[in-house]
Nucleic acid binder design. Structure first.
Lengths: 113, 113
DNA sequence: ACAACGTACAACTACTTGGTTGTATGTTTT
DNA sequence: AAAACATACAACCAAGTAGTTGTACGTTGT
């Protein structure tokens, strides 16, 4: 796995590690929303919400398009799938442990230390 | 979704948002390792690695058992699956958007603003 | 008994983060 | 033209993070 993959993963998980950002992501996956429309849902300043959106954007989890004075944000489901795929790879490592244990039971005399 | 679920999600994603911790998790999912055995893989102090292990443990992504002077860590695949499930829920929201778009195409005159 | 090993934790430092307010710039509406 | 709206970004602050070194304590090997 290259360094940039790890960089992307850092950004993904960091972006997801805040409940406000997860909530924003849910909304923009369900449909396009302007930043100020999003901001009205939270008990914090517009600037704070705008920063959260920027974190999600830098992580590639959402993208914005300009329409007049509004910035319309929508979620990128492909990025979400990529994060899911990384979790699936972790599971595969665990399954590898299981198959090595099977191996151990099948050929005990070659696997001892 | 309850507040504690969100707390757990905060801990999960925060724990995964560091490449050293992800690497540690890969190793302990593949098999049990002592903290000092893990530490030998990284160019940082033992104490730093021990802290990373503690973060993963607090997030419920790994558990330790004592054996003599060693603390053997192993990954919890069920927690990894729970994180994956959360991503799948996000995808489901996106699919909901698609079905609403289908709805829009099927009944355009009731859905205009 | 003693030295070495493995772990845990406290205290400290440099850096990052999540929030704030204020300011600037462009777009609608009146 | 002026007022209101939507966004972006800088500067600041309190709190948290990732690393360090040092210390303490139980376990293992000689």
């Amino acid at each position: 796995m290259t360094a940039t993959d790890e960089d992307r993963a850092d950004a993904w998980f960091h972006a997801l590690a805040d409940r406000t950002r997860r909530d924003i992501l849910r909304r923009v996956l369900a449909g396009e929303h302007s930043v100020s429309a999003l901001a009205q849902n939270y008990d914090m300043s517009f600037a704070a919400v705008q920063k959260h959106v920027a974190v999600l954007e830098r992580a590639g989890l959402l993208s914005k398009r300009r329409q007049g004075r509004e910035a319309l944000a929508s979620g990128d489901v492909e990025a979400v799938r990529s994060v899911g795929a990384m979790l699936t790879e972790l599971e595969a490592l665990w399954r590898g442990r299981i198959s090595r244990m099977d191996e151990l039971l099948a050929h005990p005399d070659h696997t001892q230390r």
